[in-house]
Design a protein around this nucleic acid. Sequence first.
DNA 1: GAATTAATTGTATCATTGTAATAATTGTAT
DNA 2: ATACAATTATTACAATGATACAATTAATTC
Lengths: 139, 139
Amino acid sequence: MSSQKPLTLHIDFRSGLPIYIQIMNQIEQQVSGGTLKPGAQLPTVRTLASELRINFNTVARAYRLLDEAGIISTQQGRGTYILVKPPPEVEERLREETLEALARQYIGEAKRLNCSNAEIIQKVRDQLKSWKETQLDSE
Amino acid sequence: MSSQKPLTLHIDFRSGLPIYIQIMNQIEQQVSGGTLKPGAQLPTVRTLASELRINFNTVARAYRLLDEAGIISTQQGRGTYILVKPPPEVEERLREETLEALARQYIGEAKRLNCSNAEIIQKVRDQLKSWKETQLDSE
DNA sequence: GAATTAATTGTATCATTGTAATAATTGTAT
DNA sequence: ATACAATTATTACAATGATACAATTAATTC
């Protein structure tokens, strides 16, 4: 749908550098350099793969790693976008406030369900425990 | 016509949770918590989709699943309504699922803020402690 | 007022997009 | 050569979107 610019990348098949690394590097460069602006939509994995004459899963791998690195945002069924990042100082200031707001929101809803304090805490513990397995987190 | 209240939902496109699941969770929360009362009409699939900037089929999917779960009643050509009264067993199941969904929601967003597990738990503790005092004004 | 037409609402189907499990390929060290 | 690890490809799947459709209600026309 819309604003996928061509995104010119050059893949060197003889460089020895894995293709997905080359894709990552060049996208990172274009983000740093301002060629790719926050919010811009990247080509779909299949489109880019077709242009580069490679498999779409190789592009998907690059996208996934870039997503985990916080460079882009991939959304199943929707597309892939350059991540809009707030400035570091804003992010830091917002972190505390946001976490507190999130906690209050969680507690508020849980209280409406007549959950006890013990339940409310315990459920967070439980879900934190099973978080790694279900999310395949980065660390 | 209609008493379709605005129904404020918040969708996080980066959470990894499917949009239709997020819609389901939040509607369930509001039903359990009493914000959405039996008989109340929900926004049409197109209206809600427009507000959330998503495809109306995604809303329809959430509505259909909520319908199958016995929480709402969707009627082609008429609209979608909160069911008269969720049976006790549904109520109990809903409570469990909702609390878990709430916890996961909280954790997911906190994780994205790079909060540690310790922080995530501690913040809930803190806010629980000061809950009574801070809630006196709002109720 | 009844019949007809338009508008509104949910439904069904398929295309598009990213995901995941796993196999095949390639490079490299032994 | 063989074995191993890393990379890429194959395949099936899940989530979302686009489009056409059916059911109900509202509006129009006579």
